[in-house]
Amino acid sequence: MGGKSETPLIVKGKRLDGRKFDELRPIKIEAGTLNRADGSCYLEWGNNKVLAAVYGPRELHPKHRQDNTRAVLRCRYNMAPFSVSDRKRPGPDRRSTEISKVIREALERVVFLNYFPTSGIDLFMEILQADAGTRCAALTAGAVALADAGIPMRNLVASCAAGKVDDTIVLDLMQDEDNFGQGDMPLGYIPPKDEIVLLQMDGDFTKEEFEKAKGYAIEGCKKVYELQKAALKSKYKG
C-alpha cells in the first residue's frame, strides 16, 4: 500500500482482470472438506485458496484459560510458507497475530459461546495461496466451518474488502491493486442484521471515498453471504 503504480491499474473503465468497479472475483465455497475436523470449509476466491477447520467445543487447555461463564473461541490465521511469492517464514508474526484477533472478535458476535462454559472452540484458517484479501477469505471460510461443525450461531459473518486504486473506489482488490493501490478496507458484515463486525482501513481516503467504499464492501458481503448459505445447503440437502 502507498506504493505508486508504474502502469495504470484501470484502463478504459476496466480493471486489470477485466472486472467492473463493483465486481467480486469468482468465489467457490465448499463446506465439510476435512474428515477429522468437526467442521471445515475450503474456499477459493480469485487466486486465494483457504482452508478452515473447527475443533470443538472441547476441553480447553491450559486450564487457567477456561471461563466458567462461556466457551473461549480461539482463532488462528496462518499463512503457508509457499502461499506468497517470497517464502513466508513459518509461524505466527505480528500481522497474523493481529488478523487472528480481529477475525475472532468478528465471530464472537455470532457464536453462542455461553452454551459451552469452560470449553474451547478452535478455528484454524490456513492460507494455502494468497492473492490479496486473505483476511476476508479466511473470515468467510471460518464462519462456514463453524456452521458446518454444528456450533450454535446467531448468523453467518460474510466478509469482503473495498479499496482505492488510481483514485477510483473498487470492490475486492486483487494482488496488483493491493500492492500499488492507495487504500484497502476489509469489512466483516452480518447482512440480515446490518451489522459491521470487522472493519480495518489503511491508505488515503476522503470521507466521500470512505462512504463509497463502505457501500461497495457491504454490497459485496451480501453476495458472499448468499454463496456461504448455498455452500452449507448443498452439503446438507442430502
Binding site: 480481529v102 442484521k193 482501513m201 489503511d202 488515503d204 463502505k214
Partner: peptide
C-alpha cells in the same frame, strides 16, 4: 481531510451509520 487508518475492536458490532458518525 484524509482518513488513513481504521480499526474495529471488541466482540460487539456497529451499524454502518454509527461508523459514519464516528468518522
Amino acid at each position: 481531510k484524509e482518513l488513513h487508518a481504521m480499526q474495529k475492536g471488541g466482540s460487539g458490532a456497529f451499524k454502518p451509520d454509527e461508523i459514519s458518525g464516528m468518522v
